[in-house]
Design a protein around this nucleic acid. Structure first.
Length: 555
RNA sequence: GCGCCCGUAGCUCAGCUGGAUAGAGCAACAGCCUUCUAAGCUGUGGGUCGAACGUUCGAAUCGUUCCGGGCGUACCA
């Protein structure tokens, strides 16, 4: 149920009738509470088309709106805004309908069940997940839920970069640490992975396989350790993500699914056959400069090894071939330079680049005692997802990540998150819902008869509501819930949902303080108010679920 | 040099894609618990939206040029 669109359609129909013009009136929430709940700038839009003053048009429109039963207090302000309140009757009826058919009405079918692939986290399998990965995880999972909600068939995918140099160096780092455990004296190379966790992995391998590998040749060892090390890291990553409440449908291995299957080379052949490549200094490059790139990008190094870029093109080609109509990638901040070249590459392969979108999940700066901590993999100074989970409850960090627009840098104040977690906004939201649940518990205890009546009551209308200003405010926020979902999903901005939740919680807390529901004497009024807060609770639970955040019934 | 992101209250950030007198939280100050959970509510103070031009009825939002911060700019992944 899209409340604003219902109003928009009604107003558009009137305009069509008046001027024979087919337009869609944009409805927005009024900033000036006194003049109206909502306003539309449609008269200004029409002014150009009709070559008439906006005020004249607005006045003509409101003659008709004044008689409409869904609005009241319609007025016009300069330079041509039409402001209105929704009528008590309309608001009450809409809320009643929403409450009675909540499960159906929160769904919107924009996606038409089309296949949508969202790829996120995709950390290298060379170490534990860090905090940017956590931000990507919570953002990606919330986006997936939002896209599902508006009707897409969504697949969550994790791309494992298990081909190339980094994984070789990593595997060798683990191999050397393993040999150290058996007393071999190793001169550990400075360009290898220095982190403590490398030793942990070596110990884990020793625990599982004992000395099975020490007598193999170096070549055999290197081959074996590539899989051993990678698999343990993947186990770790999967288990951390599971603890964080984020799970993937597909784990896609660059090595197994692209290189081993020949898809990388097939993509190269395809590009060659279509005259899209050019040789430069012994390397084979994509002739991308012609299509607007700054330079031609290497596909095959002069030593004959495919580049990451070629594999990435093959990967995205494969996504389309697997039948995905929409592709969304969440990349880290250091990858923004790749967006343009990837788009150009896909376009050159005649893939539908319009349905391909990359979102950058910006970096997370940690502030500890007022100082910025620089994260560096080499120095081993990196905050892992596990450390984050140990220090800060998942609900808190997720809400924190989802409060901000994901393409802006985020300052995460560790002390604040730890010591003042009591005042964290997520508790403010969860507390509102817990209070509602508490009211129902109290009701069940003190008036079991009314509690039963409520549970089996069929609400034909909610005509006792909209009485108090704070009550009306709460209702208004509830009925636009689905509009907010739609906006957040289409714009890929889950942070709109956190903002909405804070507004809803504020409206509820305010209402709670003003109106004592259980001490109301009129039974009809009491029942309807219970329906209102029950409806609010449904919205809290549903929206928090979209964000993968819990909704405790007691706090 | 070029490219991407950011610059809004003391701090952290919103701002519905061009609308009205720019909003929240934290911090500060003053009130509200014998009454459904005070993790709450009510009120006060705090701003040349980094700067300047431009586009038009109208700009925090769009364009250009600067200034400042971050990141990238590999035959690494």
């Amino acid at each position: 149920m899209l409340f604003k669109e219902i109003i928009s359609e009604k107003i558009s129909a009137i305009i069509n009738d008046l001027f024979s013009i087919d337009v869609s009136a944009h409805i927005e929430q009024s900033k000036l509470e006194k003049v109206g709940d909502f306003s539309t700038n449609i008269a200004m839009i029409l002014a150009g088309k009709l070559k008439t003053k906006p005020l004249d048009i607005a006045n003509k429109i409101i003659e008709r709106l004044e008689n409409a039963d869904f609005l009241e207090n319609v007025n016009v302000t300069n330079p041509g805004f039409i402001n209105f309140h929704v009528s008590k009757k309309f608001l009450n009826e809409t809320l009643c309908k929403f409450y009675n058919n909540f499960e159906q009405l929160i769904k919107i079918n924009i996606g038409e069940n089309k296949k949508y692939n969202i790829e996120f986290v995709s950390a290298n399998p060379t170490g534990p997940l860090n905090v940017v990965n956590a931000r990507a995880a919570s953002t990606g999972a919330a986006l997936a839920n939002l896209l599902k909600r508006i009707g897409y068939d969504v697949t969550k995918e994790f791309y494992i970069n298990d081909a190339g140099n980094q994984i070789e160096i990593f595997a060798n780092s683990v191999r050397l640490r393993y040999l150290e455990l058996f007393g071999e004296k190793i001169d550990f190379p400075p360009d290898h992975y220095q982190g403590e966790y490398v030793i942990e992995i070596a110990k884990e391998i020793k625990k599982r396989r004992a000395d099975k590998y020490i007598n193999l040749s170096e070549t055999e060892q290197r081959a074996a350790f590539k899989d051993l090390a990678k698999n343990i890291v993947l186990e770790w990553q999967k288990s951390s993500l599971k603890d964080y409440g984020v799970e993937f449908d597909v784990w896609y291995s660059e090595y197994d699914n692209l290189h081993q299957t020949g898809k990388v080379m097939q993509t190269l052949e395809y590009l060659k056959n279509n005259n899209l490549t050019i040789e430069e200094d012994g390397a084979i490059c994509l002739n991308s400069k012609k299509s607007g790139d700054d330079k031609n990008r290497a596909l095959l190094k002069s030593n004959g090894i495919p580049t990451y870029f070629l594999a990435d093109l093959a990967y995205h080609r494969d996504k389309f071939e697997r039948g995905f109509e929409y592709i969304l990638d969440l990349w880290g901040p250091d990858h923004h330079g790749h967006i343009k070249r990837t788009e150009i590459g896909l376009k050159m392969m005649n893939l539908n680049v319009n349905n391909f979108k990359v979102m950058i999940i910006q970096q997370v700066n940690f502030i500890d005692n007022g100082e910025h901590l620089k994260m560096s993999k080499r120095k081993g100074q990196i905050i892992t997802l596990n450390e984050l989970m140990a220090d800060i409850p998942n609900d808190v960090s997720k809400f924190f990540f989802l409060m901000r627009n994901s393409d802006s840098h985020l300052d995460f104040d560790i002390q604040l998150a730890k010591t003042e977690s009591q005042e964290n906004p997520v508790y403010y939201v969860q507390y509102a819902n817990a209070r509602i649940k508490s009211i129902f518990r109290k009701l069940e205890e003190e008036d079991a008869r009314l509690f039963q009546t409520f549970k089996s009551y069929k609400f034909d209308n909610l005509d006792k509501l909209s009485a108090d200003e704070s009550e009306r405010e709460l209702m208004k926020i509830i009925v636009i819930y689905t509009d907010e979902i739609k906006g957040a999903a289409l714009n890929l901005q889950p942070h709109r949902i956190t903002n909405y939740l804070r507004k809803l919680a504020a409206a509820f807390h305010s209402y709670y303080n003003k109106i004592s529901i259980l001490s109301e004497n009129d039974e009809q009024t009491k029942l309807q108010r219970l329906a209102l807060i029950d409806c609010a609770s449904k919205v809290f639970v549903d929206a928090l679920k979209i964000l993968n955040i819990s909704a405790p019934e007691k706090m």
